[in-house]
Write a protein that binds this DNA or RNA. Structure first.
Ligand SMILES: [Mn+2]
Ligand SMILES: [Mn+2]
Ligand SMILES: [Mn+2]
Ligand SMILES: [Mn+2]
Lengths: 236, 236
DNA sequence: GCGAATTTTTAGGCGCGCCTAAAAATCCGT
DNA sequence: ACGGATTTTTAGGCGCGCCTAAAAATTCGC
């Protein structure tokens, strides 16, 4: 009894903050290749830029991030592996919630955001097996396999596709639940075939292929920086 | 963009420590009625007694714990409700892991200890419905219902039952996985009928009712304070 | 019932992840 | 190429949940 336990107890979920930084850095380079600067990361994560600098140093000391003052952040090989682990957990949880637990695709992101930090490898594997080792999540994002492999199809941002382009929806960002809801109402999901009808400042009109009478579509918003939330395959 | 967000971001899992204190206080009064002093709580939770005093003041300020210096801690009505919420989550998760995810009963406690703080009410309800609203977990502990009701059967600590007593196993503490494993090997689970064969300092021998040839049993250890980890119904 | 042993509280400190304000470096337009 | 605007870093601070050491209160044995 009463072993004189020498030291500091680890906080619950000790490094979930670090996991979020790794995941967010990875995410920024997954579909685009913006340099990931502290200010970009700070605004994505809702923290002050100084907090990013601080964490960047810590992650650099841990061998997960390459950090040079005043330069963009990049992940080391080990950092990439760790980020993929977090993303694998996130996307398998989202898939499980939709496929087995009665969630709709716009409702799963926030729940996964929390559980990705607490689920064990064993439980994750059980879920993965039960789902039949899915390759992509409900929004079309690839699920890294347990060994770290990722199969992602090359894709084109919808806002960069010219009017008249037809393609298959590869991926839709899950960050805006209300957009997901309206896209579902318009019949647009990953693997749907769509055609760009017009490109305007306030949005992009997309029409799903179909007979003239039952074709459906949606207005896809474009951000100030000129990007939409949908990626399509470049098949003409 | 860049709303001048006024204040302090909440830490991830902000109050999981508080939830653990509430749960542990409740747990101590669930099957026995020891007074819950800071030293008892400190040793159960693996923290210093001064940490308990500190948290007791915080929980008292929050209206969840009755705290008077130098007196045992008790939960307020609101504290009981909150503790039952945590325990409901813990036990439903354990039940789900055993019933659907291929876990054995000695493997679930640690996983539940983490997930109980991060699962949402919605996901919990989905799991509860899927399991058919179970009343007790794999170790025989009652699962509080969503409205806070608990149905627990009166039970007798095995170490307090005389030699020759026969009864039904109501509940087995899940804190010692190796004991659970050996009890399962001995055919002892909740609702098993058992008879106390001998009471000794180092343990209690229990034999399951059965024909003379296939009767099985186990040696149940008794702690220094004279308690075992099994409760039986007082039938006879 | 009193002194010793034990328990509990207080005091002061630490690491984490965040903040604001100010200083320093880089970037950008002319 | 320079000066102002922007970005990034540094400095200092805060709340949380924990710690150890010391002080205070309670409990226990005789
Ligand atoms: Mn997501
Ligand atoms: Mn997703
Ligand atoms: Mn348990
Ligand atoms: Mn249990």
């Amino acid at each position: 009894m009463s072993i004189p336990e020498p030291a500091r107890r680890t906080q619950p979920n000790a490094d979930s903050a670090a996991e979020d930084y790794l995941k967010t850095i990875y995410h920024h380079t997954e579909w685009q290749s913006d340099p990931v600067t502290p200010s970009v990361l700070a605004s994505t994560m809702g923290v002050a830029p100084s907090s990013v600098t601080e964490m960047a140093k810590k992650l650099s000391a841990a061998g997960l991030v390459n950090y040079e003052p005043y330069k963009p952040l990049t992940l080391t090989a080990e950092g990439i592996a760790r980020a993929r682990g977090v993303i694998r957990r996130h996307r398998l949880i989202e898939t499980w919630l939709v496929d087995e637990m009665g969630y709709d695709w716009h409702e799963v992101h926030d729940e996964a955001e929390v559980l990705e930090h607490s689920i064990s490898e064993r439980l994750l594997d059980a879920i993965d097996a039960r789902l039949g080792h899915p390759r992509s999540d409900p929004h079309g994002d690839p699920i890294p396999s347990a060994d770290g492999t990722v199969h992602s199809s090359p894709a084109l941002l919808l806002s960069q596709a010219g009017v008249g382009t037809t393609g298959t929806v590869v991926r839709i960002s899950d960050r805006d639940p209300s957009l997901l809801l309206s896209l579902a109402a318009g019949g647009i999901r990953p693997s749907t075939t769509v055609t760009v009808v017009s490109q305007e400042a306030e949005g992009v009109v997309v029409v799903r292929a179909g007979s003239a009478t039952d074709a459906t579509g949606a207005l896809v918003p474009v951000t100030a920086s000129g990007t939409s939330s949908i990626w399509i395959s470049s098949a003409i």
